[in-house]
Simulated assay, not measured.
Amino acid sequence: MKSKRYYLACDLKDDPELFETYKDFHKNVWPEILESIKASGIEQMEIFNIGNRLFMVMEVNDSFSFESKAESDAENDKVQEWEALMWTFQQQLPWAKPGEKWMLMDSIFKL
């Protein structure tokens, strides 16, 4: 299977204490969340930050789709619990539509 990369962005609330707690949660991601990520076809995932901006890189296999991941997540109580918890730290990007959290980024340059 070939892989594909996606790049996404999200913001954190501008509160240093909240950010430290958010980072702590990501040092010990719940096992059910890791299992859900892997089961969806995501093979690698990294999150970076600068200030309160988050940047995610996902490497996925051919079985991955955002639609099927969303459907699976909606049916998984533990994922819903995690997402509700993470939303206490995160905020939408200024141009996001209601309910949008992580937003896909467009590639504008490649060497």
Rank of each mutant, 00 (worst) to 15 (best):
M1A: 07
M1I: 05
S3L: 10
K4Q: 08
K4M: 10
K4N: 08
R5Q: 15
Y7V: 15
L8H: 11
C10N: 04
K13N: 00
K13P: 00
K13A: 01
P16S: 09
P16E: 08
P16H: 03
E17C: 04
E17A: 15
L18P: 05
L18Q: 08
E20T: 11
T21R: 11
T21I: 04
Y22M: 02
H26G: 14
H26W: 13
K27W: 07
N28F: 15
V29M: 14
W30D: 15
P31T: 03
E32W: 04
L34K: 15
L34D: 13
E35D: 15
I37M: 13
A39R: 11
G41I: 03
G41Q: 00
Q44E: 15
Q44C: 13
E46Y: 03
I47C: 00
I47M: 12
F48Y: 15
F48L: 14
N49T: 13
I50C: 06
G51C: 06
G51N: 06
N52Y: 04
V57T: 13
V57Y: 06
M58E: 02
E59F: 09
E59I: 11
D62V: 00
D62P: 02
D62T: 00
D62R: 02
S63I: 09
S63K: 08
F64T: 04
S65Q: 03
E67L: 11
K69R: 12
A70D: 10
A70Q: 11
E71P: 04
E71V: 06
S72I: 01
S72Q: 13
D73F: 08
E75Q: 12
E75I: 06
K78F: 10
K78V: 12
Q80T: 01
E81Y: 09
A84V: 04
W87L: 15
W87M: 11
T88D: 07
T88R: 07
T88K: 12
Q92V: 03
Q92W: 00
L93V: 09
P98Y: 12
G99W: 03
G99D: 04
E100I: 01
E100Q: 09
W102E: 05
W102N: 07
L104N: 12
M105D: 03
D106H: 13
S107R: 14
I108M: 13
F109W: 10
